[in-house]
């Protein structure tokens, strides 16, 4: 790693003052599982690293009715998994966190870091930038090995997949992010935090270089809500999912009164599927209805050449997440 200056503020105001308003000059350190890898690969070269783990108000989990759930940005994935209220009320979130495989990563990695981690695209990690273009401007992804790249939202110029494990579940629950910056606090839905960059100068999320995610706010579970996350992956451990789906359904009797279906690892952003949601509304969930919703979710998917198999995996993830949610099981 290149040398950097290390600072560890104890308030969010100090943290923001220590962050540069220009990307690249400073980096935020929480769990470090992504940042240290980026530093070693020389993808980021900050002159200063700002540790945010000593900021007390970024810690802790609280749950109450009717306020709902508040998760501090530096809460580790293991702390989230160990929290009894989250296990009881938000199974899709627990199942997503459990999918971050390796106890070591769960002990270190944070909830805020899961949302802000950079894409795993191997061209990005090899220094070719977020859009992975060669010097003539051609996409290395389209011409190269795109077996793990996007099948939705892949009209370009970005083809990476969003790497967050928790975002699809948080979006399905209608969660919001609290962000603190030089102009104070703002709040946005998790769904609007992510975006597809149009140029190399843009980031894949709505955050200024001197803003920090401070809290995640999840609404209280509605009466009749069932939810689940299903992941498809190559290996059980030490691996990234190939396609995931998180669903949150509100049932009235047997019928679906409202539905959120959000796919992960298939697009440059967590991918909500209004098509799948429409296929569920007003229906009693059967295998056929779940299958129809799954088909609808990948209706607009297209292969980049080597990733056609992911369309079927995404379809399966949606169908199984729906079935798991209505089955009431909290198991993966």
């Amino acid at each position: 790693m290149r040398a950097f200056e290390y600072v560890s503020p104890t308030t969010k105001e100090q943290a923001v003052a220590l962050l540069s308003s220009t990307w690249g000059e400073t980096e935020i350190l929480a769990g470090g599982t992504d940042l240290l890898a980026l530093l070693k690969d020389d993808i980021v070269r900050p002159r200063r690293v700002v540790n945010i783990k000593e900021i007390a108000e970024l810690r802790g989990i609280s749950f109450s009715m009717p306020a709902g759930l508040r998760i501090g940005a530096t809460v580790t994935l293991q702390e989230l998994l160990d929290h009894p209220d989250i296990a009881r009320h938000y199974p899709a979130l627990v199942q997503a966190a459990r999918g971050v495989t390796s106890p070591q990563i769960r002990n270190m990695g944070t909830v805020g870091g899961d949302l802000c981690q950079r894409p795993r695209c191997w061209y990005f990690r090899s220094g070719f930038g977020l859009l992975a273009r060669d010097e003539t401007g051609r996409s290395l992804v389209l011409e190269g090995d795109n077996r793990y790249h996007a099948i939705l939202g892949n009209e370009g110029p970005a083809y990476f997949v969003n790497p967050s494990s928790l975002a699809p579940a948080l979006i399905a629950y209608g969660a919001r992010l609290r962000i603190f910056g030089p102009r104070g606090t703002r709040e946005i839905p998790v769904e609007r935090f992510f975006r597809i960059p149009k140029s190399e100068a843009e980031r894949e999320y709505d955050l200024q270089p001197n803003e920090i995610v401070t809290e995640i706010l999840v609404p209280p579970p509605s009466a009749g809500m069932v939810s689940a996350t299903y992941e498809v992956r190559q290996r059980e451990a030490l691996d990234w999912p190939l396609a995931t789906a998180s669903v949150a359904l509100v049932l009235e009797g047997q019928r679906v009164r409202s539905a959120r279906v959000v796919l992960g690892h298939v697009a440059p952003i967590p991918w909500p599927s209004p098509e799948a949601e429409r296929a569920l509304l007003g229906k009693t969930v059967s295998e056929e209805v779940a299958q129809a919703a799954a088909n609808a979710a990948v209706q607009r998917a297209r292969s980049l050449g080597k990733n056609e198999y992911k369309i079927q995996l995404a379809r399966v993830a949606v169908r199984r997440a729906i079935q798991q949610a209505v089955g009431g099981g909290a198991r993966r």
């Binding site: 470090g32 599982t33 390796s102 106890p103 070591q104 990563i105 270190m108």
Partner: peptide
């Protein structure tokens, strides 16, 4: 890079990756 666990040590009794810790 956090993908193999060979550098695992315990901090306050819990496993972490020493290659990704300062």
């Amino acid at each position: 890079l956090g993908e193999c666990g060979a550098c695992t040590v315990l901090v306050d009794g819990e496993p972490i990756l020493s290659c990704l810790a300062l």
